[in-house]
Amino acid sequence: MYAESLQLLWPFLVFVLMLLVIGIYCLFATLNLIRALIGVEILIKAVTLLLIVVGYITDHVALTQALVITLIVIEAVVMAVSVGVVLGIHTHKNSLDIRNIRNMKG
């Protein structure tokens, strides 16, 4: 029974990986602050899917659901704060271009 459920892992993992690649590509390629946040959102979606899949495969659905609920609440708060920061940048620069925030070089 265990071996059977483990065989489900790989196909799901491939899709999680694809979502992760989309999110990371978006983070690197975008020129817009809001779209960068959307990239982060897609990454979080990928992780949520992974957690649920792991719970399904190992038969720990209750635990992973509890974790995912917490994760979703935290995600909402982080997004609210980052939207506030983006709005602040917009009031200063009147634009959402990511190149505005590259005047400090690490």
């Binding site: 946040l37 719970g55 995912v68 609440v73 909402a76 997004m79 609210a80």
Partner: peptide
């Protein structure tokens, strides 16, 4: 479909609802 209905409800209400409204 993966036996996690409660988390699905949260995903629907918070992510599809609240966060989209925010964006």
């Amino acid at each position: 479909r993966l036996a996690s209905p409660l988390a699905a409800v949260f995903e629907l209400s918070v992510c599809a609802g609240l966060i989209s409204v925010l964006f």
